[in-house]
């Protein structure tokens, strides 16, 4: 059983969580059509350490996990806006 640690509810089986995709920042509103299309569709598909949205379903908590998509090892999890804290 794989485990993931919700920053609010603690360590839980992965089945309690929903993957929300990579944390991404939208381009500015005045970007070009091509930039916008790239933002809408393209993803950083290559493996590496990524920040991703995860959702703890029983409590409705969205948080961010820093995870290596090659090894599936989670470095840390934190609430949005609390990157600096442990």
């Amino acid at each position: 059983m794989k485990l993931l640690t919700c920053p609010v509810n603690g360590t839980r089986p992965l089945s309690e969580f929903v993957f929300g995709g990579e944390y991404r920042v939208a381009p500015p509103a005045d970007c070009t059509d091509a930039e916008w299309a790239a933002y809408v569709h393209n993803r950083s598909g290559a493996p590496g350490i990524k920040n991703e949205w995860w959702y703890h379903a029983p409590s409705g908590t969205w948080f961010i996990a820093e995870r290596n998509t090659l090894t599936d090892k989670v470095m840390r999890t934190y609430l949005k806006g609390q990157e600096g804290s442990k």
């Binding site: 790239a38 393209n42 993803r43 950083s44 598909g45 290559a46 493996p47």
Partner: peptide, 16 residues
Amino acid sequence: TPRICEMVDLDTPIVI
């Protein structure tokens, strides 16, 4: 595919 595309600096919508 994403690793090969990275070699030519090509973005795609592909996720593994």
